[in-house]
Amino acid sequence: SSQSQGISSSSTSTMPNSSQSSHSSSGTLSSLETVSTQELYSIPEDQEPEDQEPEEPTPAPWARLWALQDGFANLECVNDNYWFGRDKSCEYCFDEPLLKRTDKYRTYSKKHFRIFREVGPKNSYIAYIEDHSGNGTFVNTELVGKGKRRPLNNNSEIALSLSRNKVFVFFDLTVDDQSVYPKALRDEYIMSKTLGSGACGEVKLAFERKTCKKVAIKIISKRKFAIGSAREADPALNVETEIEILKKLNHPCIIKIKNFFDAEDYYIVLELMEGGELFDKVVGNKRLKEATCKLYFYQMLLAVQYLHENGIIHRDLKPENVLLSSQEEDCLIKITDFGHSKILGETSLMRTLCGTPTYLAPEVLVSVGTAGYNRAVDCWSLGVILFICLSGYPPFSEHRTQVSLKDQITSGKYNFIPEVWAEVSEKALDLVKKLLVVDPKARFTTEEALRHPWLQDEDMKRKFQDLLSEENESTALPQVLAQPSTSRKRPREGEAEGAETTKRPAVCAAVL
Score class of each variant (00 low, 15 high):
Cys354His: 03
Asp280Tyr: 15
Asn310Asp: 11
Val432Asp: 03
Thr486Glu: 12
Gln327Ile: 12
Gly345Met: 00
Glu471Ser: 08
Gly276Asn: 14
Pro319Val: 13
Arg315Lys: 00
Lys434Ser: 10
Val368Trp: 14
Asp439Phe: 00
Pro395Ser: 06
Glu244Val: 15
Val507Leu: 12
Glu448Val: 03
Glu309Ser: 07
Leu390Asp: 02
Asp280Val: 12
Cys508Glu: 13
Ile257Val: 10
Asp407Trp: 07
Asp457Met: 04
Ser325Gly: 13
Ile335Lys: 03
Lys256Phe: 11
Glu471Gly: 14
Glu244His: 15
Lys406Glu: 07
Lys503Thr: 06
Leu467Tyr: 04
Ile245Lys: 00
Val424Tyr: 14
His251Gly: 03
Ser381Asp: 04
Thr356Pro: 00
Glu426Asp: 10
Gln299Ser: 11
Lys248Phe: 05
Val283Gly: 07
Met273Arg: 14
Ala506Ser: 03
Leu365Asp: 04
Val377Gly: 03
Glu274Phe: 13
Ala509His: 07
Ala361Leu: 01
Cys354Gln: 02
Leu301Val: 11
Ile343Gln: 00
Leu278Phe: 14
His308Ser: 03
Glu398Gly: 09
Gln402His: 13
Thr410Arg: 00
Lys318Met: 03
Lys286Trp: 07
Leu295Cys: 10
Tyr393Ser: 09
Gly383Phe: 00
Thr347Val: 08
Ile312Ser: 12
Tyr298Gly: 06
Leu390Cys: 14
Cys379Lys: 02
Ser425Lys: 09
Asn321Gly: 01
Asn472Ile: 13
Leu353His: 09
Ala496Asn: 07
Ala371Val: 09
Lys289Val: 03
Trp380Tyr: 15
Cys331Phe: 07
Val282Pro: 03
Leu512His: 13
Glu346Trp: 04
Ala371Cys: 08
Gln479Arg: 11
Val437Leu: 10
Tyr306Ala: 08
Leu468Met: 07
Asn310Cys: 11
Glu471Tyr: 04
Lys294Gln: 15
Asp316Glu: 02
Leu390Tyr: 03
Leu386Ser: 03
Asn310Met: 15
Ile333Asn: 00
Asp466Glu: 05
Leu467Ile: 10
Asn472Ser: 15
Leu288Gln: 09
Glu264Ala: 09
Phe297Ala: 09
Ile343Thr: 15
Glu320Gln: 08
Val282Gln: 06
Ile255Glu: 05
Ile245Gly: 15
Arg375Leu: 12
Leu332Phe: 10
Leu301Gly: 14
Thr356Glu: 00
Arg351Thr: 03
Val364Arg: 15
Gly494Glu: 12
Lys434Thr: 04
Ile385Tyr: 01
Ala510Cys: 14
Ile254Asp: 00
Asp457Gly: 05
Asn259Trp: 09
Cys293Asp: 01
Pro440Cys: 08
Thr358Pro: 06
Val282Tyr: 02
Phe464Arg: 02
Ala371Phe: 15
Arg492Cys: 09
Ala510Arg: 04
